[in-house]
Design a protein around this nucleic acid. Structure first.
Length: 268
DNA sequence: ACAAACTAATCC
DNA sequence: GGATTAGTTTGT
């Protein structure tokens, strides 16, 4: 379960149409299905692509595959699980039993769910195959038109409502993950900025202390100004007793001897 | 009508 | 406890 989060790909691709066209070669052959009526990009469908969705959804990525169980490995698992030579039923254990019944559950979901809906409802667990198809479709369309919903429901032997709910929940999951990622990013930024702020505050205090120190005023007959070197951004103390027209005392000299204080940046 | 948000129930 | 499925409410 936790490994799902590892598949969090942040990219800055421009969503071009090519990206949106499903690349069937990545899809396992035994999951190959006749193209759904909506497997074409025209009209509003483009607006429902994940890329468009994530761009609209803000943040810094055009795609977050958070909580995305459909990795190459997962596809292989699906292939293995559904392969006649490698049936899950050959494996002992609770889990395998459950998976074995996935097909039945999927078919029964159409008829029985209407009955035990509201009352003591059993939780429907979608089969791996169903989830795979849903995920694959979701990669291309974050939201479905009624037509798409019906077609997908028919293909998966689910009620349109179930497909609809699945997509709603999937969007919610993505949003949650995005929020978490964004939150982590902002927290990091906050830490960095806090640290920088602390450093600058210290710098200001040091400069104030320098300004108030007797040493500072002792040979301060002429007015003195603080100037920032444009090259290294070090603060230099300039005496105006030197000619006003002459270049400030910011030549290479101060680069060679250390400043009295380690002042890296000073901005008024 | 639909999506989002919130919530409960269930499963592992 | 987290993930998933689904019901309810609310906003557009």
């Amino acid at each position: 379960m936790a490994e799902k989060d590892d598949d969090l790909s942040l990219s800055l691709r421009c969503p071009d149409n090519k990206n949106l066209v499903p690349s069937t070669p990545n899809f396992p052959s035994n999951l190959m299905r006749p193209a759904l009526p909506f497997m074409h990009h025209h009209g509003n469908d483009l607006l429902k692509s994940p890329a468009a969705f994530n761009l609209c959804n803000g943040f810094f990525f055009d795609r977050i595959d958070v909580n995305q169980p459909i990795t190459v490995i997962d596809y292989e698992e699906v292939v293995m699980a559904s392969s006649p030579n490698n049936t899950v039923s050959s494996v002992s254990g609770k889990r395998s039993e459950r998976e074995e019944n996935d097909g039945e559950r999927a078919t029964s979901s159409l008829e029985e769910d209407d009955i035990d809906d509201a009352a003591g409802r059993k939780k429907l667990q979608l089969s791996k195959e169903q989830v795979a198809v849903l995920e694959e479709t979701f990669k291309q369309y974050n939201t479905l038109s009624p037509k798409q919903k019906l077609a997908l429901a028919k293909e998966l032997n689910l009620r349109p409502r179930q497909v609809e709910v699945w997509f709603q929940n999937r969007r919610a999951r993505i949003k949650l993950k995005q929020t978490k990622v964004g939150c982590d990013y902002l927290r990091q930024r906050c830490e960095i900025l806090t640290e920088e702020n602390r450093r600058l505050q210290k710098e200001v205090n040091d400069l104030r202390a320098l300004k108030l120190s007797p040493h500072f005023y002792m040979n301060k007959n002429p007015p003195t100004t603080l100037t920032v070197c444009p090259q290294c951004e070090h603060v230099a103390v300039l005496s105006s007793s030197s000619s006003a027209t002459q270049q400030p005392n910011l030549d290479a000299a101060h680069h060679q001897r250390p400043m009295p204080m380690p002042v890296s940046k000073f901005q008024s």
